[in-house]
Design a binder for these strands. Structure first.
Lengths: 181, 181
DNA sequence: CCGCTCATGTAACTGGTTACATGATTTA
DNA sequence: TAAATCATGTAACCAGTTACATGAGCGG
């Protein structure tokens, strides 16, 4: 089999973390993650889980549900090996590269705007970021660390990333206003 | 026409920034960006530029090159309008969300590893990050700011992001070693 | 004249999106 | 009893990937 995609491996991880669980639960994990990267569309998740099962990385236990049935997936031993080998170490080199940040991408073309628009772009980015940081810090506060320290640390990682972006936008604001004063 | 994808708008931006330029130059921009997000594959870029031209956002000036020809693209007035409206303000809300960080994703499943493997995962992530930061800081130093202040600021943004990740990994290292001592 | 860079594409494929379709269970 | 949530899928589509194919210009 070809190498697993990031989505496939991540789904495998979610099944391990939440399992035994249904496809529905896996979807919710992505839908509620608040990330633009993970859509969690049914058309992606259902066939993907079927694929993982075919390859013996997860197994389903069917139980009755109304007229139909409901499938609870859990990770097999082969699946655990695959999961561990995906997580690393070793980590693929590309994982150290900067991520895709849509604000940063747009900013490289800021010269295409008028000075007033430039200032407003930066101000709006700062406001949006502030709001998002508030939202996530509230999540951090309400998180029960003992439930899963690694999920907690992962969430804390998003805070650090956004704080980095915040420092950057402060620098950007200074430079932009000094250029356009 | 449907809304442009991020790649389409970014290519439009690159043509504006580097233009008039060939498809080859656009590809190099993505290939040398060092980002895992932008592949810059020919199969993506060539049809995409043809699409942008069909929609009147860029125009090509053909010149002879050997037996064939070479196309230099530049952004049309309609293209400039589209570019400005994509950059914002206003910025779509999702642009404020945390990005997709493959290290963070893997870390949420760190509980699947053995304690020694966990420590090694974090240590390797830190080493890789250090290397990447060194590489990018060298780029920042060699950058001629006056050439394009916004490209420069965009590059500085990647440094801030990686520094955020660095602070986070230090916290992670502390927590992980205290759990697993 | 060799190797590198500049230059342009296409064909087959596929992972993931969008949109649709259905019904059971729980809770206010 | 109405609304929200839990639950499972499929069909059409398409943007982007992989891999292939070709050739000119240029520096040493």
């Amino acid at each position: 089999m070809r190498e697993a995609t990031e989505l496939e491996s991540t789904v495998l991880g979610v099944v391990w973390l939440r399992g035994p669980c249904t496809a529905y639960v896996v979807r919710q994990e992505f839908l509620l993650s608040g990330s633009a990267h993970w859509s969690g569309s049914a058309g992606a998740i259902y066939p993907l889980l079927a694929r993982l099962e075919q390859h013996g990385l997860i197994k389903a236990k069917e139980s009755e549900w109304g007229r139909g049935s409901k499938k609870e997936y859990s990770v097999t031993r082969r699946g655990m090996t695959a999961l561990r080998s995906w997580i690393g170490p070793p980590l693929p080199e590309w994982t150290a590269a900067p991520t895709f940040d849509p604000v940063r991408t747009r900013l490289s073309f800021l010269g295409a705007l008028q000075p007033e628009q430039r200032a407003e772009f930066v101000a709006e980015a700062q406001r949006n970021l502030e709001r998002e940081l508030g939202r996530i810090r509230a999540l951090v506060t309400s998180f029960r660390v003992q439930d899963d320290p690694y999920e907690y640390l992962s969430l804390v990682g998003t805070v650090h990333e956004l704080e980095g972006r915040q420092r950057w936008l402060e620098e950007v604001a200074r430079v932009v206003s000094s250029y356009d004063q």
